[in-house]
Structures are given as C-alpha cells and as structure tokens.
Computed example of a mutant assay.
Amino acid sequence: MLIYCWNINGIRAAEKKGLLAWLTQTAPDVLCLQETKADPIELSDQLLRPPGYRSYWAAAEKKGYSGVATYCKQAPTAWRVGLGIERFDREGRVLMTEHGDFELYNVYFPNGKASPERLAYKLDFYDAFLAHVDARVQAGKQVIFCGDVNTAHQPVDLARPRENEKISGFLPEERAHLDKWLAHGWVDVFRHLHPDARDAYTWWSLRTNARARNVGWRIDYFFVHQRCLPRIKAAGIAADVMGADHCPHWIEVHD
C-alpha cells in the first residue's frame, strides 16, 4: 500500500494548481491531506469523488480554517473523526481510517506561533493525541499516523536551526514532545530509513523565495509504532511537486 501525505494549504487552491491531475498520475492507495480549509458540502463532486477514490473529511467549525481529508481507493473498514475532546475536535484536525489490520491517523497538528495561548494549545494537543494513539496500541491495534506536525524535531530537520531556536516550530518544549513520542515506541519513518539524509525538507516559507534556495523545514512526518515498523519498506519526500508551501511525502506499507 502506497500512502501519500500532503499539507495542501487550501484544497480549492490546490485544485486550481493541478491536485487532481497529480492524484491521477501518482495513484496512491491512500492520500492524506491537511489544511483543506473547506467544508465538504461546499466542494465540487470532482473533489469529493475523483475517479477511483472515495473521500472522508474532518472540517473545522470555523470557515476556511484547518481541516483534513483522506482519499482511499478501497473503502476503509471503519473511519471516525476527532479524539473525542471538544476543544480539539471543533478544529477538524484528526481523521482515522482503518485499513485491514491497521489504523491510519491523518492529523493537522496546531501551529503555536500566533500567541502563548496557541502554543499551550499545541502542546496540550500533543499530549492528548499521544495518549489516544498509545491507548489504541495498548488495545492491540497497529497504528500509523501522519501529517503536518508543525515542529522540526532535530537540527538536521531545518536549514537554519540556530536562527530558529526561539521560534515556535523549533522550541525546546515542542521538540521534547517529539522526544516523548520516540520514548513511547513511535518511530519517525523517514529518519529511520534515511538516517543520514540532509537538506530533506517538506515546508518552505513563501515570503523569502526559500524553496528555490532549499531553506526549509521538515515538519511533516509519518510515525509508526515499533510493532508496525517491519511492514514499512520505503519512505520518501517528493520535493519536486509544487502547488503549496509544503510538498508531499510518502511511505510503502506491506502486509
């Protein structure tokens, strides 16, 4: 199973930039999108049901904000929205689809740059999400989660670590949460398979022509629990794919 993940920074804008043509050409089994910024009732049939796919949505209460969508070639055996926590679920950040014997979580983690309150919200979300997926593993489930984590974990994961030490997205307290994920048995798939990869980024600021200079951040991830790790055979970043300030990244999952 080929799974792609992409923060497309507005699905209607991405549609105009060729999202559906890219989907047809790439043909992943599953595509997880973040920051869709749309309620599905407002979207075209082409976006909701592109040829060969079904789509599942989590929309924010606030219009034009947040949101995730998962496109599947085969209908999942189950799906659900949210964590069951109202303060997080109203922002449409979590969508789970079940594929055979594993659960796939498509997540748009909060950004903490706006204010100290939003940073606290982000860290609370990290804690709540970890508790949720840990409980699923303890219940005997195989779990994969992916999305825009909004934090670069290690200095190798961004081009200018020293300059960003006091910026949300690379703060010590944010990075410590990702350390905690690893301590709980979660594995950063790309870094596990490509431990020496450098200049491998998934997001570039639109303000400074950063993408042309590859001054970027790796803030988009696939994490799998170590129990599921033997099934992951490949992972990569499609940095050549344009259309948003993020690029797609992917993994291959085998039976």
Rank of each mutant, 00 (worst) to 15 (best):
M1R: 11
L2P: 00
N7H: 09
A14H: 07
A14M: 01
G18V: 02
L19M: 10
Q25M: 11
L31H: 07
L31R: 11
L31G: 08
E35K: 07
S44D: 01
G52T: 11
W57P: 13
A59Y: 04
A60T: 09
G67F: 04
V68L: 06
T70E: 09
K73V: 05
K73F: 01
Q74C: 06
Q74D: 11
T77N: 06
A78H: 11
R80T: 04
L83I: 05
G84A: 10
I85V: 15
R87H: 15
R90A: 14
L95T: 02
M96C: 15
H99A: 05
H99D: 09
E103V: 05
V107Y: 07
Y108N: 10
F109I: 09
P110V: 01
P116V: 05
D124S: 12
D127S: 13
D134V: 08
A135F: 13
R136T: 12
V143Q: 00
D148S: 06
H153A: 07
D157V: 02
L158F: 04
R160I: 02
N164V: 10
S168H: 04
L178V: 13
D179V: 09
K180G: 02
K180A: 09
A183Q: 14
D188E: 12
H194A: 03
T202Y: 06
W204T: 05
L206S: 09
R207F: 13
T208D: 13
N209G: 15
R218E: 02
Q226M: 07
C228L: 15
I232W: 13
V241N: 10
H249C: 01
D255P: 14
D255W: 14
